[in-house]
Amino acid sequence: MEMRQALAKELDRLMEINPNIVVIDADLSKPNGLMALKKKYPERAFDVGIAEQNMASIAAGMSSYGFIPFINTFTPFATRRICDQIAISIAYAKQNVKIIGTDPGISAEYNGGTHMSFEDIGVLRSIPDIVIFEPVDTVQLSKAMPQILDYNGPVYIRMFRKEISNIFSKEEQFSLFSTSNLQKGNDLSIFCSGLMVQETMKANEELSKIGIKADIINVHTLKPLDKPSILKSVKKTGAVLTVENHNVIGGLKSAICEFLMEEYPVPLKSIGINDKFGQVGKIDYLKKIYKMQAEDIVKAAVEIKSKRKN
């Protein structure tokens, strides 16, 4: 199933139960798979046109009236373009608005550099009280949505919108504010997020072949960090590799470093965008260009394991 289909299905289910949910689009409900909601709930699912800053503040106003708005657009427009509206109308005013950004990082593919957000997490992470969540697959997204709804405050949902293979099973427990463990190991801690979780698991097949057993942890919620889980893993392994579809400045690597440098400094390497702008290309091509392939993850894992603290 495509991520956007899972999103639409879950929103539809929640809107049926909760009359306070509103869905607001800025002329991208078609690519985000939300057109059907507008037909089914014409009053509560509507478009503001290409006016993202207006969308954010309208949502804040509706939240002040008791509604729970979900605003939707591509990640660059959901974050850097409307940073001030998120900071002031939503976060500072303590409004309960959920922000959905699709096509994160290299998944913007042929839309290229203008649409390729490598900085969106960094933009929002320094605004107080915002939860930042990046689902890995449709299972995780579907399980997260009711918890996101229950959280009274702004949440940024940074999500891939197309077909993706599921990593998690429906039976597994999920908590929005706890990391998800993908494999237990002692040789190093790999903290991975979003689109790069699948690539990390691919790399893990190679690591297993050469006898490296990593503690692999999906940090689906980048803010607030599940610090106890991260610390527990790092105390066990003594080395860290972060893997993300974002600039290594401001995203997962930064969040992990900021925490560990104060609590338990260990050798660390990172896979992600090394402070570059985006460009056109398919995901596989872009992974190669930005050195985010499984082989890059393997190489970095081997290197950092050799420098482990323990």
Partner: peptide, 19 residues
């Protein structure tokens, strides 16, 4: 409504009117 960053309050007002 919290205001001060100009322009935003007016959109908030529109959202409130819609609500």
């Amino acid at each position: 409504m919290t205001t001060g960053s100009l322009g935003q309050g007016f959109s908030c007002a529109a959202g409130i009117a819609k609500a």
